[in-house]
Amino acid sequence: MTDQLWAVLAVVLVVLAGGTAALTAGVRRRRPPALPDEQPAAPVATADAPVDTLPPDVDDTDVVVEEPSAVEAERPAPVAGRMVRLRERLSRSGAIGRSLLSILSRESLTEEDWEEIEETLLLADVGIGPTTELMDRLRTRVQVLGTKDAASVREILREELLQLVDPAMDRSLRTTKGVGDDGEQHPATILVVGVNGTGKTTTVGKLARVLVAEDLEVVLGAADTFRAAAADQLQTWGERVGVTTVRSDREGADPAAVAFDAVQAGRTAGADVVLVDTAGRLQNKADLMGELGKIKRVISRQAPVSEVLLVLDATTGQNGLRQAQVFAEVVDVTGIVLTKLDGTAKGGIVVAVQRELGVPVKLVGLGEGADDLAPFVAEDFVEALLS
């Protein structure tokens, strides 16, 4: 009888222990949900949460690191001679200068002539403010000097246009490596943004060639994950010059995660510069614009963003200026890349966008060739307008 009691007690104890364990496990699973307005805290860079940990609002995306093929890479054209070589193409937009010179060289300038000058400047997208300033200065200098000599008039116009374009602006690309709080070097990171159809991905590929021509090690980040063709296109540009491309393994992946991994790959490889391409977006779409801010914030966990380059189509005129204003509010644009500048009389957008944003035009696209992207030089630009 005693043995039976002990057996019963043992069974009871086992059941109670199992129930307690189940109850405890159930409690662990039923943690209270976060409140709707409660945001998870960002991981802190400690030994348990290193800097390469993705923030909680970024999807963990598998990426593919596409190393360049074993085929010998192309050597891009030297950067130094590009503006000279492409002067002829740029001069096609010299309709502004030629029109102004022809008017200013007339025997006597009437009020109708001055109105024609003003109209020429406005049609060239110089903008109302800069046009008014240039008109006032031209009137004063022409009247004071009282000269109609073509060479003298050209020199006056060159000086005034150059002042508008502002040669004092810093147009250099920030491609110098930095040192993080951990004492380790990190690559310069350049984020490239813009609306659809401006030639943004092509510009990133051409910019990679500019940097490779300067003997810099480059990694490309294909953060335009909404178009598989964009990643393919960027990878092709990279392979041509022996540059690694980091891309997602699927369409529609989180672009911030791809950008994060691209910078991480650049750090691991000891690259000098990481170029991050982003999806083209309309400036009036708040959610897409907000995503740019997220990409920049996530990149900054690996390394500070050195440059935010906004790609603008030179032929869009004042609409391009409105685009620039919105992008500047979201991601703090540091430089402008003007594409399709060849063959257009809209070169005045250079003046307008710089004046509005206080941001320099740093690069210009002057054709469809692989090396038809050149650093913007104010003096060369004005000379081409007047050539």
Rank of each mutant, 00 (worst) to 15 (best):
Met135Ile: 15
Leu292His: 07
Val195Ala: 07
Asp3Ser: 13
Arg82Ala: 05
Leu341Tyr: 07
Thr316Cys: 08
Val8Arg: 15
Ala168Asp: 02
Trp6Met: 09
Leu104Met: 07
Arg139Ile: 03
Met83Glu: 08
Val273Ser: 05
Phe376Arg: 09
Gly317Gln: 10
Glu383Leu: 05
Arg174Tyr: 04
Glu155Ser: 14
Arg322Cys: 02
Glu88Pro: 03
Ala34Gln: 14
Glu112Gln: 15
Arg227Gln: 05
Pro32Lys: 12
Gly238Ser: 06
Val210Tyr: 12
Trp114Leu: 01
Met83Tyr: 06
Gln4His: 05
Asn196Val: 05
Leu138Trp: 00
Arg158Asp: 02
Ala188Ser: 09
Pro33Ser: 11
Ser108Trp: 05
Val298Thr: 09
Ala257Thr: 11
Ala151Glu: 08
Leu338Ser: 08
Val308Gln: 01
Gln318Pro: 00
Gly194Val: 07
Gly348Phe: 09
Ile190Arg: 05
Glu38Arg: 12
Gly238Asp: 04
Leu234Trp: 09
Asp62Val: 15
Asp57Arg: 13
Ala168Asn: 04
Asp136Glu: 15
Arg28Tyr: 08
Leu5Gln: 15
Ser300Ala: 15
Asp232Cys: 06
Val263Asp: 00
Leu191Asp: 00
Thr147Ala: 05
Gly221Glu: 01
Glu184Trp: 10
Thr203Cys: 05
Leu90Pro: 03
Val71Lys: 15
Arg92Gln: 12
Leu5Asn: 10
Leu109Ala: 00
Leu220Phe: 07
Gly343Gln: 06
Asp371Phe: 09
Arg154Gln: 00
Asp313Ala: 12
Ala77Ser: 13
Gly18Ala: 14
Glu379Tyr: 04
Pro304Trp: 11
Lys285His: 10
Ala259Val: 08
Ala45Gln: 04
Ile96Val: 15
Asp277Ala: 09
Ala265Leu: 00
Gln318Glu: 06
Ala231Arg: 14
Lys346Asp: 06
Arg87Met: 08
Leu234Thr: 12
Glu291Asn: 12
Gly221Leu: 03
Gly293Tyr: 11
Val359Ile: 12
Ser69Ile: 11
